[in-house]
């Protein structure tokens, strides 16, 4: 139970950090530092380096970009949402490793194609690198997994840290069911 309470606190803190980052252009390394200050030892190490978190942020925003008046990955706290997933002890270790492996492979493709790190690429280059990765063995499942979590951040109850102010529901004219959850599923 204490784990879950801590985890809830984590959601609140990390979401607040992310909202701040999207409005003040804080880099994701800044977010990572803020996150470390509130680090709960009962969460599992994600295995991702700060650079890889920055890269994942760039991937998410390419896969689901912000548009005027229409939310993108960063607007729905997708990175913090994924961090809550990957640091959950219930998340499978092989999935955790897969998240990291995908980033490593993507970076290798980026260096090979453009001689640059992924975060340094133009939008067109990112598209080319991701499309190249998509055709590789790990590419398709890795990208769809990331998209799944972005869409969870977009459309699950704000209780879980994504979908701030129901921004995703409003965009897609979605009516949530009642009663809304007040307790996260892992506390049931």
């Amino acid at each position: 139970m204490s784990f879950n309470m801590n985890r809830r606190q984590f959601f609140i803190k990390s979401s607040a950090s992310l909202i701040a980052s999207t409005t003040s252009s804080l880099s994701m390394n800044s977010f990572g530092a803020a996150f470390d200050e509130t680090w709960d030892k009962k969460l599992v190490d994600s295995g991702l380096s700060p650079d890889q978190w920055d890269m994942l942020f760039a991937v998410q925003n390419h896969l689901f970009p912000s548009e005027p008046g229409i939310p993108g990955a960063q607007d729905v706290n997708a990175l913090a949402y994924f961090r809550s997933i990957i640091t959950d002890p219930a998340y499978d270790e092989s999935d955790r490793l897969f998240a990291k492996t995908g980033l490593v492979e993507l970076e290798l493709i980026s260096k090979k194609i453009a001689q640059l790190s992924f975060i340094q690429l133009s939008v067109e280059q990112k598209e080319l690198v991701l499309r190249t990765f998509e055709k590789q063995v790990n590419g398709y499942p890795w990208i769809t997994t990331q998209l799944n979590y972005i869409l969870e951040a977009l459309l699950t109850d704000p209780l879980y840290g994504g979908n701030p102010n129901e921004i995703g529901w409003k965009w897609l004219e979605h009516t949530p069911g009642l009663p809304r959850p007040t307790i996260q599923y892992f506390d049931l």
Binding site: F64, P65, N148, H174, G177
Partner: peptide, 29 residues
């Protein structure tokens, strides 16, 4: 079924590969 995440995830799969970016957002709309 109104489940929005399940419905949205179904829009990822495209005839020529994974749909992402602005095309995915137009599909969702």
């Amino acid at each position: 079924h109104p489940n929005p995440v399940v419905r949205s995830i179904r829009q990822i799969r495209g005839s020529k590969g994974i749909t992402w970016g602005a095309p995915l957002k137009r599909k969702l709309e």
